[in-house]
Design a protein around this nucleic acid. Structure first.
Lengths: 189, 189
DNA sequence: TCCTTTGTAGACAGATCTGTCTACAATATT
DNA sequence: AATATTGTAGACAGATCTGTCTACAAAGGA
């Protein structure tokens, strides 16, 4: 899960420069902690340019989450395939994410915690994001009557591992706990 | 998990009035979203009184988390006992919390998401909080070699259920998924 | 009685926040 | 050639943020 797309941002159109900059700052430092002034300074645009593309900060927040959703899902699906494409791929995939130096938890869970009570859009986007994440997990499971139920349960456990890895010194305990749950699930009828 | 202690706050000493008010606002609306001015207005104190008790907002944030820890742990342990004191007590206990109208997720996970990168104290307090939560869960399990491992895994799954219940329309799916995991654990050797 | 603690009232500083405004330049599109 | 879009530079408004300051009042313990 790379946080930084290593293309020269200065060559990109203003709108994308703003979005990429906002992404990094919102994810690394938090949404309320990041002012518009900082974003326009680091994106190298002016205020008028910014407000022509994003009528308000709330609009930018929503577009940031939509963008994050696209980017994270693409990485997630690709990483799961790279690691085998079945349930065994889940732990190495998450390990890859957690061990990245830019890891700061789930942007959507962080967003809900920070803004859930004031910006309902964030809750809506998060629901749909987690639905897609659960779908990707479901695709790792063999067809069965319990497939959806299992995918839901794994998805919840994954969220637990994500937040745990966010505050623990190392992601080891989070991954080990998730492994334990997955192993029980594998052995279950 | 009552968010509001129904005692007449106006009769309490200023310090406690500030702390209770900060607790409710920080938890309901977020920490950065809540200004000092609002806290002193709703607590009914003046600025000097406030800053005599809490040298800075960061101090208040830490004391808020310490207070929240005491209060939440006391409720948690009591509720687990009320519901039987074994592993079966976990679901009804969490259901009680999730269904409360004031439920806004875990104050510590929200705090880490919001301030983790700027206020390391929050991460430290969260680690110790989750350690205590895990201990309370461990106390529900019969002694065995795997007790600690299981308690850790359950604790991670509980965190997943908490964040899920925070953005889902109802806590049902979160509780159902956690139940599934707990049932597998119970059947395991 | 003296003195420390705890409290009140409210002005003030200085920074930062979101968002608007004027005025002008380069680039596409029609 | 005329026009619409996208861009730049930077001042400005008005709110809100954290934290400090002076001046005064009440209550408790030494």
């Amino acid at each position: 899960m790379q946080t930084n797309i290593n293309q020269d941002r200065r060559s990109l159109p203003a709108r994308e420069r703003i979005l990429l900059t906002a992404h990094d700052l919102f994810y690394q430092e938090g949404i309320r902690a990041t002012g518009i002034d900082r974003i326009i300074a680091e994106a190298g645009v002016t205020k008028v340019t910014f407000y022509r593309h994003f009528p308000s900060k709330n609009d930018l927040i929503c577009e940031f989450l939509e963008y994050r959703h696209q980017r994270w899902m693409a990485w997630f699906i690709d990483a799961l395939q790279r690691h085998g494409g079945d349930l065994n791929a889940l732990i190495p995939t998450l390990a890859e994410w957690f061990q990245n130096g830019n890891f700061r938890g789930c942007a959507f869970l962080n967003g809900v915690g920070e803004l859930g009570s004031t910006l309902p859009e964030v809750v809506k986007i998060t629901r749909s994001h987690k639905q897609d994440m659960t779908k990707a997990i479901s695709d790792l499971l063999p067809p069965s009557e319990l497939r959806e139920q299992y995918a839901q349960a794994i998805s919840v456990a994954v969220d637990g591992a994500i937040v745990r890895a966010q505050f623990d010194e190392t992601p080891d305990a989070a991954l080990k706990s998730l492994s334990l749950v997955l192993n029980l699930l594998k052995k279950s009828p």
